[in-house]
């Protein structure tokens, strides 16, 4: 396993107005690995990964104390550009959310806004992304049909392809299977394992089995605090903290 630290959170505290959502979180995200974040609803998992690509910037009246690094560069420094950051740190959301455009246009959108105009290049990249997202065979004959016609699982893989098209280095998955059936979920999990060879992956999940299946590292959050962070196998087989043990054995949450 690669031990290079790709992203790093250092003493992160985050507030919505006066409510503290994250308390002094420090966490290393290793390159080319899958880091899962588990914990009950409202524990700050989503808030945390939305800091990694500065999506929380869009919410008014929030405040961050602490630092987040991508390749040792502070992503919240004055010189850092959130638009540039989001090109490098992509995101797949909980609900499949394709644009009401064609399959092709959905994937080309990220290239388009990044000023990539060369038609051949865009086409190659679209096909490549669809292949990587394991969707190519299913949609190759209907690239110009509306993306909304796809099933939920296909839409989510389309969203993954759309994210891959801009060549991110890190991909954040925010409960990507929450609205999918078990077969679609299995496909997405398989895909995540495939993608970690090229990308660094952080996944928020409600589903502990999912974390156990896909993640190399797992972090357990509770009420805005990072309770335990370890290699997945160790966290699940020999949790050091009683709260972690209670959670993974299903005593609460």
């Amino acid at each position: 396993m690669d031990e290079v630290v790709k992203m790093k959170a250092e003493n992160v505290n985050f507030f919505y107005g006066k409510t503290q959502a994250l308390k002094d979180i420090s966490l290393d995200i290793h390159a080319h690995s899958v880091t899962a974040i588990i914990g009950p609803s409202g524990c700050g998992k989503s808030t945390f990964i939305r800091l990694l690509n500065r999506m929380n910037d869009l919410i008014p009246h929030t405040q961050l104390i602490g630092r987040v690094y991508l390749d040792c560069q502070d992503v919240f420094s004055h010189a850092a550009d959130p638009v540039e950051l989001r090109r490098r740190v992509g995101m797949v959301f909980q609900k499949p959310n394709p644009f009401p455009k064609s399959i092709f246009e959905n994937i080309a959108y990220g290239l388009h806004v990044n000023n990539i105009k060369d038609k051949d290049f865009v086409e190659t990249r679209v096909i490549e992304s669809l292949k990587k997202a394991a969707l190519w065979e299913e949609v190759r004959h209907r690239l110009h049909e509306s993306a909304l016609k796809l099933s939920g699982g296909q839409q989510q893989r389309l969203c993954i392809a759309r994210c891959l098209a801009v060549s991110p280095e890190v991909i954040l998955f925010d409960e990507p299977c929450a609205s999918l059936d078990p077969i679609s979920t299995a496909k997405i999990e398989e895909l995540i394992l495939e993608l970690k060879k090229e990308y660094t992956i952080v996944i928020v999940t409600h589903n502990m089995q999912q974390a156990a299946r896909v993640a190399d590292y797992t972090a357990f959050f509770l009420l805005g605090e990072l309770i335990e962070f370890n290699k997945t196998q160790e966290l699940f087989t020999a949790p050091k903290d009683k709260k972690t043990e209670a959670y993974i054995t299903g005593r609460f949450g």
């Binding site: 992509g90 995101m91 959301f93 959310n97 959108y109 801009v166």
Partner: peptide, 18 residues
């Protein structure tokens, strides 16, 4: 227009105006 559309757009590195 759903907030999720804007969110995705930003997450792909689009600026506000884009």
């Amino acid at each position: 227009v759903p907030y999720s559309f804007r969110e995705v757009s930003y997450s792909l590195g689009a600026s506000k105006w884009q």
